[in-house]
């Protein structure tokens, strides 16, 4: 099975500080998205069980750190990679990214399965997977927590509120996975060293035959601020029992505790 895993480079959110409600991203490392790692791990397990190849594909969106991220994907176990980098992609929105990814998948020699994380670690729009499936005209399963290869198809399991749904889709198909699906491997030093010599294709929009106008952002980010927490600063006085009573009453009044 030839698999394409679409991956994105994200600032390591745990390392982001907030100062005056703004995120401080200076000196924050960029990493392969957490859920993208789950998708890649899924691909590695499918390939190791059934053979085939894995290509990691990423869209640069004007971010030069993409090269490091792609190396991470290759070190984990992708066989090759393709990066689409074009100045026109700065500020690309999910629709544009999906259009570029779909064009990239079409350009690759063969693809049976396209895997995604259910959303990106940073913006988490969750749109790109379904959009790519639509553009490629292939069936899509979202939020898979198990993916198995069966003859000419994949069988996916997903958790619906009170039941587990099992779906089988004929290949080619697109699947997005959730974090419970697996524990992504940490690349070993040997794999990191070997990743250096794995092939990486570099494409521009022109290489894919995508018009720069088609990826112009149709979305404007108006503000991106940390939530402000407002505390009530209520101090309860009296004996411990009185304080506890007053505290519980206040919580009931706030609707935090039910009557």
């Amino acid at each position: 099975m030839d698999i394409v895993v679409c991956v994105k480079t994200n600032p390591d959110l745990q390392m982001v500080r907030v100062k005056n409600r703004e995120a401080v991203v200076e000196a924050v490392p960029y990493k392969l998205g957490d859920l993208d790692k789950n998708a890649l791990e899924t691909a590695i397990q499918l390939r190791d069980a059934a053979g085939g190849t894995i290509t990691a594909v990423s869209v640069a969106e004007g971010n030069r750190k993409i090269r490091e991220t792609i190396k991470e994907a290759l070190a984990m176990g992708a066989d090759s990679a393709a990066v689409v980098d074009d100045p026109a992609l700065a500020g690309a929105d999910p629709a544009a990214v999906a259009a570029v990814l779909a064009a990239a998948v079409k350009k690759l020699p063969g693809c049976d399965l396209v895997l995604f994380g259910e959303g990106s670690t940073d913006n988490y729009s969750g749109q790109v997977g379904p959009r790519v499936a639509e553009l490629l005209g292939v069936p899509q399963v979202g939020f898979a927590r198990k993916v198995e290869a069966v003859d000419g198809a994949v069988r996916c399991e997903r958790s619906m509120d009170e039941m587990i749904e099992t779906l089988e889709v004929a290949l080619p198909a697109a699947v997005t996975v959730v974090s419970e699906i697996n524990e992504p491997r940490i690349p070993s030093l040997m794999h990191i060293m070997k990743a250096k010599s794995k092939p990486v294709e570099e494409w521009t929009l022109a290489d894919l035959g995508v018009d720069a106008g088609a990826v112009a952002a149709r979305r404007e980010i108006v503000s991106n601020l940390a939530e402000e927490q407002d505390r009530k600063h209520v101090l309860f006085e009296g004996s411990a029992a009185e304080q506890a009573d007053a505290f519980v009453n206040a919580l009931i009044k706030e609707g935090v505790l039910g009557r």
Binding site: Q14, M15, V28, I186
Partner: peptide
């Protein structure tokens, strides 16, 4: 191990 522990910013 590698990815773990304190990470100063």
């Amino acid at each position: 191990r590698g990815p773990y522990g304190v990470q100063y910013r």
